[in-house]
Design a protein around this nucleic acid. Structure first.
Lengths: 331, 331
DNA sequence: CTGTTAGCGCTTTCAG
DNA sequence: CTGAAAGCGCTAACAG
């Protein structure tokens, strides 16, 4: 069932059939009707590979996220997929386990498929480089790591972290543990900056020993958090992402530490469990699904006009105060 | 940068280059080395569309799930993606919002791309029909709705529901509310069957008024659950999926009902929050990521040998008893 | 308005 | 072991 089959069936040539189905170019109404009817009747499905080969571009947008099991990435992907589908584009989703090598492999795959663009939560600059060099539009979401100018959708990490930290400082905390990721990602850097800025604002010195940087794949993250608790006796913890918040929460529970009486906890990136546990977790919330949607829109806009200047959308996160934060003990 | 460019660079013809890169057919070692080196040096990326067009099949497996925001589907997708990537296949992920029409559109898209196979959590039989009719292998995960024989990975819903219900019955509950989905899906049907079977085993009659079937997109699910609580005064609730469990939990909390003293709750499909809330939610756990992985493996196996008979893998779920279940009040 | 023609980049006989 | 040739299904000039 190819275009020529269809054309023969309707008594036209393949070119006319092509025009009728794509809506580009002139086709007489009767011919067009016969073609459309035949396509319907025969269940004609155009061959996407042939079309992509000819047009040198497909409608498949590449998406790379670290790990779908993390709700943050899953929601991002959900937003992207939704916006893409509305515009009749498809999402090819690849995971990268936060590994530069896998990200690069994904980029190569997208190049091979003539993807018109790629959306990713980058773990390195190499993949973006490769794609942009080959003329593929890239949108970075959540983090910005590219060496070259490119569209991005991020949130104001510094402002979010500053709000969270200020909240703790105002409650009277003076020893706040910062649980971060051991990377050079802009997310983490921004959150660290906000943490320090809030301390500066309040004229409270930061004890460097309270800064913990956990490896992305660290199997002993909870042990590390436990040691921080034991060694440095922070009265509050600021976990810079939802996974670290979950791990911190586990450690606190295991050690029987009551929140907020004995210790306070603030997270970054609101996920459902944080509102369900008792006490609820105070958190810097970000519009994750919306970020995905916007990234897709940015990409589509660029597909329309490739020469538009790179735009970086910076969304504002929101501090949601719940029961996990309160005054430090004996304060 | 096409194959011919590469061939010219290495002083061979395109055919030889093709053989060298694909590993099929004879190529003299020196020629092969020159070709491989040139490919490396020039960063040659083969054009997937051209290859798919020629071979009439691609390495892109279609995956359709209802909604990535639900952790169940996200984890399924994570398992599928992982297994696929290990075998050097890619995942094209489309959502369908549990709508037959969108599922069908997704199927057409996969047809257009020459997908070697499709994995889905089906919402109807039409999409599978279409695909199978066109010779595309289909694996159903979680639910079985196809009219035609096809591979599937499911869990033993009846056994799981029976275990959960028996657990409640043994605790002394006699009025158990069943929160199900208003569909003809095998998941729900199996869970209902298990619910009834457990009652039969225990010789306890089922009061039909305790059976609530909520529409998949119902905006007022929580109201409906609230009414069931008020009208029928069940002493326990069995929520047939993670979303219903979450909604039931919200209603119980909002109404200030303590678990398990005033009411017991059992869920189906373990998700992280269930172990984090207090009391933890007793639940029938299923190996979600593993189900995804197996579905992918089944698909790959069929790609190898298209004539193998359809196999249905039935995994066993596991009842995880936590604090949300106990004896009924005044019992 | 329509058909002819010429490829898009790759793989695969088939001769050599 | 290698190259020439044909063609996968579609689209885009271009000439009618």
């Amino acid at each position: 069932m190819t275009l020529s089959d269809l054309a023969r069936e309707a008594g036209t040539s393949a070119s006319t059939a092509s025009r009728a189905l794509s809506g580009r170019g002139y086709v007489s109404p009767p011919a067009r009707d016969r073609l459309l009817a035949a396509a319907e009747r025969l269940g004609y499905v155009p061959n996407a590979s042939a079309r992509a080969l000819k047009q040198r571009t497909s409608r498949v947008v590449g998406v790379v996220v670290s790990d779908l099991r993390n709700q943050f990435y899953a929601r991002l992907a959900a937003g992207i997929e939704q916006a893409l589908r509305e515009a009749d584009f498809q999402m090819m989703l690849l995971g990268d386990n936060s590994e530069g090598a896998e990200e690069l492999a994904a980029a190569r795959t997208f190049l091979a498929m003539n993807a018109p663009g790629v959306i990713m939560t980058p773990v390195g600059a190499a993949a973006t480089d490769l794609l942009v060099r080959h003329g593929v539009a890239v949108v970075e979401v959540d983090r910005q790591l590219a060496d070259v100018p490119c569209d991005a959708v991020v949130i104001d990490n510094e402002a979010g972290a500053r709000a969270a930290t200020t909240h703790l400082l105002e409650l009277g905390h003076r020893r706040i543990g910062l649980l971060g990721v051991d990377t050079e990602w802009t997310t983490d850097a921004g959150r660290r900056r906000g943490f320090h800025a809030a301390h500066d604002d309040a004229d409270v010195p930061v004890d460097e020993r309270l800064l913990l940087r956990v490896g992305v794949h660290a199997a002993d993250a909870e042990d590390q958090i436990g040691r921080l608790l034991y060694d440095e006796a922070p009265t509050a913890l600021f976990a810079a992402n939802n996974l670290l918040a979950e791990q911190a929460w586990n450690v606190l529970r295991r050690n029987g530490l009551r929140m907020p009486a004995e210790i306070s906890l603030v997270g970054f990136d609101d996920v459902p469990w944080m509102a369900m546990v008792d006490p609820g977790i105070t958190v810097v919330a970000q519009p994750t699904v919306e970020m995905g949607r916007r990234a897709a829109q940015l990409l589509l806009a660029r597909a329309e006009s490739p020469e538009r200047p790179a735009t970086v959308e910076i969304l504002t996160p929101q501090l949601v105060v719940r029961g996990s934060t309160g005054a430090p003990p004996t304060a």
